[in-house]
Amino acid sequence: MPLWLELTIRVGGVVVAFLTLPLIVGQAEHKVMAHMQGRLGPMYAGAFHGWAQLIADGVKFVQKEDVTPRAADRPVFQLAPLVALVPYLLVLLVIPLGPDDLVGQALDIGLFFALAVVGVGVVAVLMSGWASANKYSLLGGLRAAAQLLGYELPLVLAAASVAMAAGTLSLSGIVETWEPWWLLWQAPALGVFFIAGVAEIRRPPFDLPLARSELGFGDRTQYTGLRDAVFPLAAYVGIVVIAALTTVLFLGGWQGPFGDDYLGWLWTLVKVFAVSFVIIWLRVSYPRLREDQLQRLCWLVLVPVALAQLVLTAAVKIAM
């Protein structure tokens, strides 16, 4: 296969995943959330149980006027949604779907790349929060910055633990060395990574920066039309990314009870959707945290647990 063809197929595959997975997760969020609240959720768009609701939403968003507030910093304001979306797209590039190089772009330090690029997302929040010229947006932006800076630390520490256990930073390499008993060994890191990941994508119960009921969606307050649609899209891609990273790092990626070689991609997808379901489930079940509770959870619970996990990992690694 010539290089350019392979490259096109790989990038095309990632783009397809980028366009479908978030929509599936978004639709699942609509329906799961509705049923958990004793409702039906969307029922009309697309005739069968409202399967086309998000597409209909998209069509609606396209028709809306694109408003930029007069006092806003125009270029920054208009660029921010793009900056919010691109990092997650880049992360999808390095997440392995199955064995034998079934990945957008295999990177030797894929884990590091993923964490670094996810961290760039906070710049977008600050950009949109500040450039909107709105005090609620600014509050949201500042809250987001404080939250993301804090939760980056346990996220990286938990990921470091599993990288230490596997002895590699390559995501495929981590899945290859993964063994079922790691579920027990790395359980604290799994918890820390998952919670910090949910906080990193600002999902409820960690959605203080958005806080629809108090800040009117924080940094997104002033956005309309297509630009406004990009933020929820980025949020859904964020769910997919965090679920996929959790799957690959802690749940064994493509390893399953049977048929790893030809069904690996299916195992990965099943696990990604299961973790996404848990993220949605958390949103329905728990109320939003307060700012002090948020910081307390990060610095007094997650960081110490992650550090303890690092020590444990090192101890087991040396003992073996």
Binding site: H35, M36, Q37, R39, V284, S285
Partner: peptide
């Protein structure tokens, strides 16, 4: 609670 509600019929 939320999981149990999900398995029940909705009230819509």
């Amino acid at each position: 609670v939320t999981l149990k509600t999900m398995t029940r019929r909705s009230h819509t």
